[in-house]
Amino acid sequence: MAKKKLAALDVNKCIGCMECMFACSRRVGRGGFDKSAIRVRSAGGIERGFVIVVCRACENPPCAKVCPTDALSARKEGGVILKEDKCIGCGFCTQSCIMGAIFWDNERNKPIVCKYCGECEDYCVHNAIGMVGIKAEER
């Protein structure tokens, strides 16, 4: 099966319910969003709509480039893979991502990066987000 990534398909359909955020943390037995790799917030007032912040699975990810310990490495299909035992919690990756799509786990002092598992997609009943093919032709 072709590898996929998560994408904001149509931000206009986002109702700001945050179910994607809750779904992400639920995977690890949490009610809340402190383990979530996706965020939704208003674009400065609900009337302006919402911003969906999620890893774009960059082809040449800046976050991996700045990681001093190679804990973050570029994934062949785009995006990154985190090797937690190598991570020293410096936080450079979060600074390098201009999307703000690398979140922080304060309990473990490590980044939270999207694994492209698609769990959140199942709870987006209005189809604002969804899994898409990595390559343009698969979309």
Partner: peptide, 13 residues
């Protein structure tokens, strides 16, 4: 626009 309360998929607002 239709929006929702936090943690409600309905979006009645």
């Amino acid at each position: 626009k239709r929006v929702s309360c936090s943690h409600c998929p309905v979006g009645c607002v």
